[in-house]
């Protein structure tokens, strides 16, 4: 009887995610414009990708993105979380403020940065320019566009990690901290030997999630630069979107989606293994 309880969730999941995902896998081997009958091209879409400079730019950009997000927001989050632990007072207030950017819609965050910070006309960058401090709009330069977008996502994201790390840090057994203190550990020794090892599972999980999320990044790139200028900030997900809905090359888009999924699959394998350990642990 209880099997029936699973039906609504699984039915929706299968219809919306599983079946279309299987179709996408099939589509990757076809040429299709979304309207006429698809024609089988074997590995043609993948061969085209290998020879496509934009694909390699997008792929490299995803790797750069992953590297940035493995280091900067995790570092910022850890730093702020440990500082909240030291300060003790006001941690709720700091958490709420740091978390605010997480609850603001991506489309709005993107426009605020675009118009109020980066813009040479209406933004702070423009104001600095008029004051004689030469600073270019990072979104307009091929060499900096990706980093300009990444900065916005960083702002939106680090508070989430901070809050998660803070929650984990509070679970570190009090006795360990007390013992280290009695032995005269400095702050850095405390971090190195007690706090960081204490929350290692959380840090590992967030790193695995960072890899997965970094290959899914879409909103900020699509809104801020559409992958431009000259495809310099293109990532795989915006490339797939453009292939499907602007170039009407759905087979190609499906091939890109498969590439994203394969990378995600490897990371997901580790994610599920970590989660499985947690589940065994809590359900006994």
């Amino acid at each position: 009887m209880h099997r029936l309880y699973l039906v609504p969730t699984l039915l929706i999941n299968v219809v919306i995610i599983l079946i279309p995902a299987l179709l996408t896998i099939a589509l990757a081997f076809f040429r299709w414009d979304g309207i006429t009958v698809p024609s089988f091209v074997g590995l043609g879409n993948f061969e085209a990708l290998l020879g496509d400079r934009v694909f390699w730019t997008a792929f490299t950009n995803n790797l750069i993105w992953t590297a940035i997000f493995m280091i900067v927001p995790i570092g910022m989050g850890l730093l702020a979380a440990t500082m909240m632990l030291v300060a003790r007072r006001g941690s709720t207030f700091f958490q709420v403020v740091y978390f605010l950017p997480v609850v603001i819609a991506t489309a709005i965050t993107a426009r605020v940065w675009q118009g109020m910070i980066y813009s040479p006309v209406t933004g702070v960058f423009g104001l600095l320019n008029r004051m004689g401090i030469g600073i270019a709009n990072p979104l307009a330069q091929p060499s900096t566009a990706l980093y300009g977008v990444a900065a916005v996502d960083l702002w939106h994201w680090w508070g989430f990690l901070c809050v998660i790390f803070f929650a984990a840090l509070r679970q570190v057994p009090q006795e360990q901290i007390e013992a280290a203190r009695l032995e005269g550990a400095t702050f850095f020794q405390m971090m190195r030997y007690v706090l960081l090892p204490g929350i290692r599972p959380t840090i590992t999980l967030m790193m695995v999630m960072t890899i997965i999320w970094s290959f899914l990044v879409f909103d900020f790139v699509y809104i801020l630069t559409q992958g431009g200028p000259a495809f310099s900030s293109e990532v795989l997900s915006t490339m797939a979107y453009r292939n499907a809905f602007y170039d009407l090359n759905v087979g190609q888009a499906a091939a890109v989606a498969l590439v994203i999924s394969c990378i995600g699959l490897v990371a997901t394998f580790f994610y599920i293994r970590i989660q499985a350990r947690e589940h065994e642990h809590e359900a006994g």
Binding site: T9, I17, L27, G34, F215, S237, A244, V250, G264, T268
Partner: peptide, 17 residues
């Protein structure tokens, strides 16, 4: 279910659309 949380939207977006 855990696996589908990490699936990219692009993996099912195009046939769905």
């Amino acid at each position: 279910l855990l696996g589908t949380t990490t699936a990219p939207i692009q993996l099912f977006l195009f046939p769905l659309y």
